[in-house]
């Protein structure tokens, strides 16, 4: 596909802990369309944060990318005369090497959940933003400073020429997150990954930051990968949605299809558990049970112990990705011909 920016194929990330192996990401296929916003939705601990960090090839010990590809179709750079095939498999790069470091912060930038702790309290925000600029461009310190002030202004920080020299702990949470966005945008990345950027903020600030991000996305023509567990945020910002459960993408579609006709029982349950305005007073319908212990994943379909529509085969057969229409895929046995699967598996 020509307009795919990042193509993740069968990505598996395992954590080798003393208590056992945790399959944080267990075979994820995901294509992110250039210029669009993809929301990655899931409960905490489902592996969405680990997966998106892998796009920068940042996986912490004892975690490890066990298999899979992350093909990054870079924009063709006129200035660099290197061959026409500019795509690169990020999963194969040395995580400490030059190549991936040139991608990080420049072509793929990231915004983190905790604006409180994601800036170092030892340096001014200006210092930390300029660091990114100086690292990836040939600008002088003076030029970088001017650019930083412009960026701070653009993300809506008042008196940017003064606040550039402030320490992060002297700013409010919203201001810090704005500064974080300014830092991410400083080298005009093609892909911006936002890992729950609004979770730690109050509701009004949340709305402001979301507006800001949408505006900036248009302005910079960025692709946005937005990780969240908040379906309200998804409805507001996303073009496409991928739902993750226990390390797998169990459903993916455009945002309208997902909200109007969710296919996977988990997605259905997720939508039911969200309060809606203008709805008649009725009890919310939370999902039964708890997220299983990461060390003991259920056999078969990972959702079967909590699934209201589970049947016998769900316990043993791992569902495959089934296409339900254009851009709508689901991993659920309800949409698979189970008997055929059982037959083929019995053969092999």
């Amino acid at each position: 596909m020509a307009d795919t920016l990042i193509d993740v194929k069968d990505l598996r990330i395992h954590f080798f802990t003393d208590e056992g192996v945790v399959r944080a990401v267990g075979g994820v296929d995901l294509a992110i369309t250039r210029g669009k916003t993809l929301a990655l939705v899931g409960e905490s601990g489902c592996g969405k944060s680990v997966a998106c960090r892998a796009l920068l090839n940042i996986v912490h010990r004892p975690g490890k990318i066990v298999s899979g590809e992350i093909i990054f179709h870079r924009m063709f750079h006129q200035s660099s005369g290197s061959g026409s095939d500019a795509s690169v498999d990020i999963a194969e790069l040395n995580p400490k090497g030059r190549e991936i470091r040139d991608i990080r912060g420049k072509e793929i930038a990231m915004i983190f959940q905790e604006p409180m702790t994601s800036f170092s309290s030892m340096y001014t925000i200006g210092n930390q933003i300029m660091e990114n600029i100086l690292l990836h461009t040939n600008l002088s310190k003076q030029e970088a400073r001017i650019l930083t002030i412009e960026l701070l202004d653009k993300v809506g920080i008042p008196k940017p020429s003064r606040l550039i020299d402030e320490y992060p702990f002297r700013l409010s949470g919203g201001m810090r997150q704005r500064a974080m966005i300014a830092m991410a945008l400083s080298c005009s990345p093609t892909l911006l990954i936002a890992d729950e950027p609004t979770t730690a903020l109050d509701v009004t600030t949340q709305a402001n930051i979301l507006d800001l991000m949408q505006n900036l996305q248009k302005q910079y023509e960025m692709t946005l990968l937005f990780i969240t567990h908040d379906l309200g945020v998804v409805a507001e910002i996303a073009d496409e949605v991928a739902v993750m459960y226990l390390g797998k993408i169990i459903e993916k579609s455009d945002v309208f299809t997902l909200f109007n006709s969710p296919a996977h029982p988990y997605t259905q349950a997720l939508l039911k558990s969200v309060p809606k305005i203008a709805m008649t007073r009725e009890a919310l319908d939370p999902i039964k049970g708890m997220v299983p212990n990461p060390y003991s994943r259920p056999s078969g379909c990972p959702f079967h112990p909590r699934c209201p529509k589970a049947f016998a085969a769900c316990k043993t057969i791992v569902p495959k990705t089934t296409s339900l229409g254009l851009h709508h895929t689901v991993q659920c046995l309800l949409y698979e011909d189970v008997t055929e699967r059982q037959a083929t598996e019995a053969l092999s």
Partner: peptide, 25 residues
Amino acid sequence: EAQDISEEGGVDLAAEIPVMGEAAE
């Protein structure tokens, strides 16, 4: 590496708890 790690830290645990799922429980 997975093997290395499990040999490094998990020897006695492995001996004690044969099935990982039970271990977690």
